[in-house]
Amino acid sequence: MPILNIQIMQGHSAAQKTNLLKNSSQAVVDSIAAPLPSVRVVLEEVASDHVIVAGELAKPMALVLARLIEGRTPEKKAALIAALSQAIHKSIDISEQDVRVIITDIPKTDMGVANGITALAAGR
């Protein structure tokens, strides 16, 4: 059950944000073969005066915090990072140089899934 929190600066259009949500969801499906019904994405917008990148205030950026059930290979994780970076660039025209993706592996015993059971109990 991939769960993504994507932080971007305020000021993007509704269409851009919709594209970002759809493209990032599809990036997860395509890169790590997660089933679409299991993908969750939350978009968070940050005021530009609350962002500094490489010493530059209000520089466009994106930060993705991706939580995954443990067990994916380094190659799958690298594919996810690349796919998310491309999806963000394509959706809201931020340079891929200013996109960061942080992956956290969650033990199967520590991830709750449908019907309030652990991923381990669900056989994931």
Rank of each mutant, 00 (worst) to 15 (best):
I3D: 06
P107L: 15
L80K: 10
L65K: 11
S25D: 11
S48Y: 07
K22L: 09
M9T: 01
S24L: 06
L21Y: 10
Q26V: 07
A114D: 00
I88H: 07
A79F: 06
A121F: 06
V41F: 14
I69V: 10
A27I: 04
T73S: 15
G123M: 06
D30Q: 13
H89G: 14
K17G: 04
D105I: 07
K17M: 03
P2M: 10
P37Y: 02
I81A: 15
I8W: 05
D105Q: 14
L36G: 01
A47K: 12
H89S: 13
Q97H: 06
L65R: 15
H50C: 09
T104F: 09
I81Q: 01
D93Q: 09
A114S: 15
I102M: 12
V28L: 08
S31M: 04
P2W: 03
K76T: 09
I103H: 05
Q10P: 01
A83C: 09
S95W: 09
S13E: 01
K77F: 12
I52G: 13
P107K: 14
S24M: 14
L43T: 10
I102Y: 14
L4S: 04
N23F: 12
V41C: 08
Q86I: 07
S13Y: 08
A78W: 15
G116L: 00
A34K: 01
A66Q: 08
R124L: 13
D98T: 01
H89P: 02
G123P: 01
I69H: 08
I106V: 15
K76E: 15
L21P: 08
T18K: 15
